[in-house]
Simulated scan of single mutants.
Amino acid sequence: MSTTTRTVSATPEQVWEVLADGWLYPLFVVGASRMRDVDESWPAVGARLHHSVGTWPLLIDDTTEVLEVEEGRRLLLKARGWPAGEAHVEISLRPDGASTLVTMKEDATAGPGVLVPKPLRDPQLHWRNTEALKRLAFVVEGRTR
């Protein structure tokens, strides 16, 4: 599983507030181009984000589902982006003084992505998630000013 970490200059509660608003995901998830719907129960287990990935006009509609949640601390998601496949994405928050250490772990779980050897897959996921956490930090820190 590829692991990426970033310190965000905000409290875990402030970071969680952004994660708990499913409509904000296209602002920080690399590849997500638009949100079509968010289940009312988001981010409860079983709740889904209905998103599109890609660039217009080549958009693919799919979903991301909450598999596990620890309110204010951790989300385990099943992200779908067929035909590329599925991945498990874990986002965890840990207080770090006045800041929050945000860790994102991701790996392919189904589809063609699992055929890519792990030594080739991990650096690509790390690069993508480094950008995602940078974007998340911009959103969170921009809201807390």
Rank of each mutant, 00 (worst) to 15 (best):
residue 112 P to N: 05
residue 89 V to I: 14
residue 84 A to R: 06
residue 99 S to C: 14
residue 83 P to R: 13
residue 83 P to Q: 11
residue 82 W to M: 13
residue 98 A to N: 12
residue 90 E to S: 15
residue 98 A to D: 15
residue 99 S to I: 01
residue 100 T to D: 11
residue 103 T to K: 04
residue 92 S to G: 13
residue 87 A to S: 15
residue 104 M to L: 12
residue 76 L to S: 03
residue 103 T to P: 07
residue 86 E to P: 02
residue 111 G to M: 10
residue 115 L to F: 11
residue 88 H to F: 06
residue 76 L to R: 14
residue 114 V to A: 09
residue 75 L to C: 05
residue 103 T to N: 03
residue 84 A to T: 03
residue 84 A to W: 11
residue 78 K to F: 02
residue 77 L to N: 07
residue 108 A to L: 14
residue 103 T to G: 01
residue 83 P to V: 02
residue 76 L to Y: 00
residue 114 V to L: 09
residue 78 K to Y: 03
residue 82 W to Y: 10
residue 77 L to G: 08
residue 114 V to Q: 13
residue 83 P to I: 11
residue 87 A to E: 12
residue 113 G to K: 04
residue 92 S to F: 06
residue 105 K to Y: 00
residue 98 A to M: 08
residue 113 G to S: 05
residue 98 A to E: 15
residue 94 R to W: 00
residue 74 R to I: 01
residue 82 W to Q: 11
residue 93 L to M: 05
residue 74 R to A: 04
residue 90 E to P: 00
residue 85 G to M: 07
residue 86 E to S: 14
residue 104 M to C: 12
residue 100 T to H: 06
residue 89 V to Q: 09
residue 76 L to P: 01
residue 108 A to Q: 09
residue 93 L to S: 04
residue 96 D to Q: 15
residue 99 S to D: 15
residue 114 V to W: 01
residue 75 L to Y: 00
residue 112 P to F: 04
residue 110 A to H: 13
residue 112 P to H: 10
residue 112 P to T: 04
residue 86 E to C: 07
residue 111 G to K: 05
residue 106 E to A: 07
residue 96 D to L: 15
residue 105 K to L: 05
residue 98 A to V: 13
residue 96 D to M: 11
residue 98 A to K: 09
residue 115 L to A: 10
residue 110 A to K: 13
residue 81 G to R: 14
residue 74 R to S: 11
residue 77 L to V: 01
residue 106 E to K: 00
residue 80 R to P: 02
residue 94 R to A: 15
residue 77 L to H: 07
residue 102 V to F: 09
residue 77 L to T: 08
residue 78 K to M: 08
residue 113 G to T: 08
residue 101 L to Q: 14
residue 93 L to A: 09
residue 85 G to S: 10
residue 99 S to Q: 13
residue 104 M to G: 04
residue 115 L to W: 05
residue 91 I to Y: 02
residue 114 V to P: 02
residue 80 R to W: 08
residue 91 I to K: 02
